[in-house]
């Protein structure tokens, strides 16, 4: 079995509002100033094996992107460490490695509109001395071709490309840094279905060729199922279930995972079929003030006293995955 590559250890991330001047003075003088912080990621530990793709699924506000940014060394964690092959990704708020790169959701926002795409792709590798300035042209051309674009496009600007092509550029930019770990944060969410399929195929091809390790963040359960070896389900800053993709999808053990899978509309192929929709009741509680005990308890059909009092920890289920629920087995 291959070894652990990315390891996230007891990651906690809180976002606190900056205090007003008055409150700062009051705090200095020893007064009690109430600050409410957003519990974005709450004590998450997980690891990704070398060469593996882990899917990270959750709804908006569950902390999946924040966790991805901590793993990528873009955001410092409030506590806990992210390490890559045993070495911390970030030390004292500075990123220490170029081995992890990110592809972001919106290729309209993540590419500098005033830079030709060739410069966008070459900037990182030149800065980090992976290539020399004179090699840049052929290096960029090679990557453009690899992601299915014409090498001659290097002179063009981002606005001359469609959304799908821009996402190809974003992928080329990340891979040109020759990373070992690729963090994909909703890479296909803003694309049309037919373009989405093209980008997923490109991702599968590059992953095969480069043997790259990947953290694939998405809210789209069917996309994650398609590309991931293992999958982790997040809810309100915590991982509620993690395991082999097929196990989690075919026998979900956390009530939230089950409800989430039930909520996904399926293609209906029978005439006059009355599709039963079984939505989860209620909404995600505010991360400013997460509920006590299990964070899913206000919406859970199985919730009992214990769920309100005691926070469940991840534990192994009979079916193989790990689940944070008092009553699953």
């Amino acid at each position: 079995m291959s070894e652990t590559f990315l390891s996230l250890d007891a990651i906690i991330k809180r976002f606190s509002p900056s205090l007003s001047v008055g409150d700062q003075i009051a705090a200095r003088l020893g007064a009690k100033v109430e600050t409410r912080s957003v519990h974005a990621v709450d004590d998450v530990s997980l690891s990704i094996l070398r060469g593996e793709t882990l899917g990270l699924v959750g709804e908006s506000g569950c902390g999946k992107s924040t966790l991805g940014r901590i793993a990528a060394g873009i955001l410092p964690a409030t506590s806990g460490t992210a390490s890559l092959g045993g070495e911390a990704v970030m030390i004292n708020g500075r990123k220490t490695t170029t081995e992890v790169q990110t592809v972001f959701q919106d290729p309209f926002a993540s590419l500098d509109p005033r830079m030709p795409i060739g410069d966008i792709i070459a900037e990182g590798p030149i800065t980090h001395n992976l290539i020399t300035r004179s090699d840049a042209k052929s290096y960029v051309g090679g990557w453009l071709e690899r992601v299915g674009l014409d090498a001659g496009f290097a002179e063009r600007y981002p606005h001359q490309f469609s959304g799908g092509q821009r996402q190809r550029v974003a992928i080329a930019r990340a891979l040109a840094m020759q990373p070992q770990l690729l963090i994909c944060d909703e890479p296909v969410a803003s694309l049309d279905v037919s373009i989405q399929a093209q980008i997923i195929n490109l991702f599968l091809k590059l992953r095969r060729e480069l043997q790259i390790t990947c953290l694939f963040i998405s809210h789209d359960l069917s996309v994650v199922r398609h590309v991931s070896d293992r999958v982790a389900i997040m809810y309100l800053g915590r991982i509620v279930e993690i395991g082999e993709t097929e196990t989690v999808y075919s026998s979900p053990s956390h009530p939230y995972t089950r409800a989430l899978l039930d909520s996904v509309p399926k293609l209906v192929l029978e005439d006059d079929a009355l599709v039963e929709l079984r939505p989860i009741v209620g909404e995600i509680p505010s991360p400013l003030d997460p509920p006590a005990g299990c964070s899913f308890n206000p919406r859970c059909p199985m919730a009992r006293d214990r769920c309100i009092k005691e926070e469940p920890q991840l534990r192994a289920m009979g079916t193989g995955q790990q689940t944070a629920c008092h009553f699953s087995d």
């Binding site: 279905v193 037919s194 373009i195 989405q196 399929a197 599968l204 091809k205 199922r225 293609l267």
Partner: peptide
């Protein structure tokens, strides 16, 4: 065919070329 649910996990999807 472009829907990820139609192909076995990890296999290439049938894509529509171009845009």
């Amino acid at each position: 065919d472009s829907l990820p649910a139609t192909a076995p996990p990890g296999q290439n999807l049938q894509q529509i070329p171009g845009s």
